Structures are given as C-alpha cells and as structure tokens.
Computed example of a mutant assay.
Amino acid sequence: MSNKYRVILQHIADSGEGSRQGRTLQFGIVSHDDIIDIADIVRTKAIVPDDEASVLAVGMKLLGQVVLKHRKELAFADFWPHFRKLSEKRKALSLIKDGFGECLRRDR
C-alpha cells in the first residue's frame, strides 16, 4: 500500500536583507511507510526534542528515498553503503515498530 503526502515549506521570517517571506516550496511524495506514524514514534521515544521529531523522521525518510533511487550515481555512490547499513540495522532491530531511539541509545 502506498501513502501519498504533500510537503509544504513556507518561508516565514528573514535572517538578513531582502524579503523572501511568503515564498513556498511544495512537492509530493509516495511512501510505503506511514511517515506520520514514524514521527510519532520518534516523538514518543524522546530521541530528540519534540519540535525536532518530525524534522528527523521526515528528513531521514526523504533522504532515504533519494539516496536509494540514485545510489549508483557518482553523487551518492560513496554515501550509499553507509546509508544502507543504517537502514538494514534499523530494520533488523524493528526500529519502525519498536522505536527509532533504542538503537541510537545503545550505540552511544
């Protein structure tokens, strides 16, 4: 089963000169995982502060999709083995089911 999402990034404040407020970036993604459930697990396990849980979950999922798709290309070839190892470890330890944080805590 596929889950479809729309990601919207809106610029709400400037850090310097010029006004970029109101600019948005939107794109759609499809994932076999429920990304919102993953973010909830990250938040529940208190791996990072609550306001960073969604950023971590969504960021890792989006990065993973791109890296997997382009793993043989020069830009990702060196990174792919490391990301693959992290993904395999996550799956082996049932981190999606049991929580992403237990693995991170054990490896410190």
Rank of each mutant, 00 (worst) to 15 (best):
D78F: 08
A39M: 07
Q21A: 11
A57R: 00
V30D: 11
T44R: 12
R90P: 07
H82P: 00
I35N: 00
Q26R: 10
D37R: 09
I36F: 15
I29Y: 03
I36Y: 15
L74T: 13
S15F: 14
H11E: 11
C103A: 12
C103E: 14
S31P: 05
I47A: 05
K85F: 12
I12A: 06
E73I: 08
L104S: 01
L86N: 09
S54L: 11
V48M: 02
L63T: 07
R106I: 07
Q65V: 06
K97D: 10
M1I: 13
R106S: 04
K61S: 11
L9W: 10
K89C: 09
L74P: 08
V66R: 01
K85W: 14
I38L: 09
R105P: 00
R108L: 09
D40A: 08
D51M: 08
F76G: 00
V7L: 05
G18P: 05
E17F: 15
L86V: 13
S2P: 11
H70A: 05
V67Y: 10
E52S: 04
R84I: 11
A57S: 01
R20C: 13
K69G: 01
H11N: 09
F83S: 01
S19W: 11
L56P: 01
F83W: 07
R23E: 07
V7P: 01
K61W: 14
V55M: 08
I36D: 14
G59E: 04
F83V: 06
I29N: 00
I8W: 10
L9F: 11
K85G: 04
S19V: 09
E73C: 04
L104K: 01
Q65Y: 06
V7K: 03
I38D: 02
D107S: 12
L63R: 04
L68Q: 11
A13M: 08
H32N: 15
Q21V: 13
K61A: 14
D33G: 09
K61G: 05
L68Y: 12
F83I: 06
D51V: 08
P49D: 04
V66C: 02
R6T: 09
E73R: 08
R90L: 15
D33K: 14
K85D: 11
S2T: 15
H32A: 13
R71F: 09
N3Q: 07
L62V: 06
S19D: 15
D107Y: 15
L68P: 01
E88M: 10
R90T: 14
G59V: 05
M60L: 12
S2V: 15
K72D: 13
A53V: 00
